[in-house]
Amino acid sequence: MRAAVMFGAGDVQVKEVPDARIAQQTDAVVRVTHAAICGSDLWRYQKLQPTPDGVRVGHEFIGVVEEVGAQVTSVRRGDLVLAPFKWSDGTCEFCRAGLHSSCLNGGFWGGELDGGQGEAVRVPQADGTLVPLPLEPADPRLPAVLALSDVLCTGHHAARAAGVGPGATVVVVGDGAVGLCAVLASARLGAERIVILGRHARRTDLARRYGAVEVVPERGADAVERVRALTGGHGAHAVLECVGTGAALRDALDMARPGGAVGYVGVPQDGEGVDVRRFYRRNVTLAGGVTPARAYVPVLLPDVLSGRLDASAVFDRTVEVDGIPDGYKAMAEREALKVLIRP
């Protein structure tokens, strides 16, 4: 089968790889119908050291079950399913607590395992991972559903971690797909006023469609000053950090009002920390981390299917498997926000 393999920074190739097949009786094999390139994939695309054997990539996909192991009971051949960006068993103590991202027997797609950017995937722990969908493979709502595999759940996690609710003033740091989904999630949770930090008109225009009322193009101290001016000098109730750099997190903390909260979900990239004195005296809460997408999908899916929660517009380019390298290039050069893959 064909799949995307990354051999180093800027080097993604589509290669023939071994077919996905059952290895454990808790596995399923899924033929991919929809996949995506994630902003977090770009960090590796920009930094990966040369790797002769390459690494498989991709962690967002929908597909049709082709085969199941003898112990799989929740899905069967022919089912259309969504896979969250991390697989989990659904039964360990952390899964039972709704923290599937910390599953004792889970893991991430790609690396030595099949990645979602290919024709098929072996899914470990299929019962705890896959979400059956009441749709046909040609349903036009599937791009909106695909957003639940990562970015929409991640935006929701940021909003939940920061306690977004009715009447809240929210600032979203970052205008990538996760930041835009954080806007959408905040609007769903009843935020009264949403501000987004961003400089790209196509993205900030979409943020306004999703519920943002103000755009702050500044960065650093200028952005903090602007946000405070917009919020009566106090800062926001909730700030959602959707970038992943130390600078973005520090700015987010400075934008929160006393007693406010920062929900951080940007994958940390530079290892830069923050001085706790930056927010200690203001009693600002810092919460977030890796999104337990498998816990959120059942909660959000009904709103996605009804059209109330539609993040499909973040996909602004579509490629086939052979076009995946061009999709990476387009996103890296900001010619595309998020690329949809249709094998």
Rank of each mutant, 00 (worst) to 15 (best):
R141P: 09
V121R: 02
P134G: 11
L152A: 08
D150M: 05
H100L: 12
P137G: 06
E112P: 09
S149C: 06
A158R: 03
H100D: 10
V145I: 08
R122Q: 12
S101K: 08
V145S: 04
P137N: 07
P132T: 13
G107L: 09
H157I: 02
L142E: 05
W109E: 03
E119R: 12
L146N: 06
G106T: 08
A97K: 13
G116L: 09
L146W: 00
P137S: 10
G118Q: 08
D127I: 13
G115E: 06
A161D: 02
A120W: 01
G116V: 09
F108S: 13
C103F: 03
L113N: 15
C92E: 06
A159K: 01
G116R: 04
Q117K: 15
A120I: 05
L133K: 05
L133Q: 06
A126K: 03
G110Q: 06
A138W: 11
L142C: 08
P134A: 12
Q117C: 15
C153H: 00
P124T: 04
H100P: 10
G98I: 07
N105S: 14
G115D: 09
G90S: 02
F94G: 10
V131Y: 02
A162T: 00
G111Y: 08
P140D: 05
D139M: 13
L99Q: 15
E112Q: 13
G110D: 08
P132N: 14
A159T: 00
G118K: 07
E136D: 15
R141Y: 05
G107V: 12
P137R: 09
R141C: 14
P134H: 09
A120Q: 11
G90H: 01
G98S: 08
L148W: 00
